[in-house]
């Protein structure tokens, strides 16, 4: 385990400056990913998962967004110090992304083959013909039948699952070291979801690429990830290996998430499914103290006053909760 991490995010904070105040979308987030590893980032929508990954890609719309502090090191390079031109050489080449909405993430007026080939031509300087041949191989690799003809399809001629496969092929096009997948299966049917996850896992083993998998679904994490980051309202609240997290979830929010999926809750609670009461607080108007306290069934007086640190508790893994701290 002395291996150099592929990606190190250290103390990242990204804010959005809106008419109605500053939205602290990501606050002091740190994590790292090793080569060939899958990191799951989990939390409800609006908790900063996507902003974290867009920050790594330096794709935060600016203004209103801004990376206020932190350090992102990828493959020995400090990403935040690169200029736009250098950054473009990394995007789609060494780091690529898969987005949530396969229906809208492909450009409707271009053939899928050309859209895959575009990045190859740009980053590897292949001819259009050679790039299109690579696109056919990629489509085959992601399990699209008769790729030789499908490569000339327009996006609207494909189903949602097919389009997500195209997105994956596009992400794989330049053999990236890291793929950031932002809710890649959320918009798909349940049966298709499993296929896509299986495919991603297979490709990770084959190509040795690392994956940062963003999802609100702990079930997905359980199947694919090695490490997990639980986020809530812009903060990391718990960080653990996947086995550790599922055998010993500590943060009340993590436990709440687990109770809300069938067949994953703690022994005695397995019988009934639960939901976490309330909603994620507005990032413009965060509660004082622990950001989760007003939805937490274990909340104490202290929780409303002071925010806990992210600390290793009981010698196991880091968690941000007063229940485990003195």
């Amino acid at each position: 385990m002395t291996q150099q991490p592929l990606l190190t995010v250290d103390g990242l904070s990204t804010y959005f400056y809106t008419d109605r105040g500053v939205a602290k979308a990501v606050c002091d987030v740190s994590y790292d990913i090793n080569p060939g590893e899958t990191l799951g980032v989990v939390g409800e929508s609006g908790c900063g998962k996507s902003v974290t990954s867009l920050s790594v890609m330096r794709l935060i719309p600016e203004p209103p967004g801004k990376i206020v502090s932190g350090k992102i090191t990828f493959d020995g390079q400090d990403l935040l110090s690169l200029n736009e031109r250098q950054m473009r050489k990394i995007r789609g080449n060494k780091i690529s992304m898969i987005f949530q909405e396969p229906m809208t993430s492909l450009n409707p007026v271009f053939r899928v083959g050309d859209q895959i080939a575009e990045a190859i031509i740009l980053h590897e300087g292949l001819s259009h013909k050679a790039a299109l041949e690579r696109a056919v191989d990629l489509l085959k690799q992601v399990g699209i039948p008769s790729p030789e003809s499908r490569v000339y399809d327009y996006p609207h001629q494909m189903s949602g699952g097919m389009r997500q496969r195209v997105m994956i092929a596009m992400a794989l096009a330049c053999k990236p070291k890291l793929i950031i997948a932002d809710e890649p299966t959320t918009a798909l049917d349940v049966t298709i979801q499993a296929q896509i996850l299986e495919l991603m896992d297979k490709l990770r083993e084959e190509t040795g690429t690392a994956i940062q998998l963003i999802t609100h679904d702990l079930g997905v994490i359980a199947e694919t990830a090695q490490k997990v980051l639980v986020m809530y309202a812009g903060r990391v609240v718990e960080q653990a290996d996947v086995k550790d997290l599922f055998t010993n979830p500590m943060h009340p929010y993590t436990r709440g998430l687990m109770r809300s999926i069938p067949g994953l809750g703690e022994q005695e609670e397995r019988e009934r499914l639960e939901t976490i009461p309330g909603v994620v607080p507005s990032l413009l108007n965060l509660p004082k103290g622990c950001r989760f306290h007003d939805r937490c069934r274990h909340a104490m007086e202290r929780c409303a006053l002071e925010e806990p640190e992210l600390k290793i508790a009981d010698g196991k893994h880091p968690v941000r909760c007063w229940l485990y701290q003195e």
Partner: peptide
């Protein structure tokens, strides 16, 4: 504002190509 523009940015395309092609 569309998602596919974000995809094009994530591919590493230059703004000129994103604007005038995509």
């Amino acid at each position: 504002r569309q998602d596919y523009i974000r995809t094009a940015k994530a591919k590493g395309l230059a703004p000129r190509i994103i604007h005038y092609k995509h």
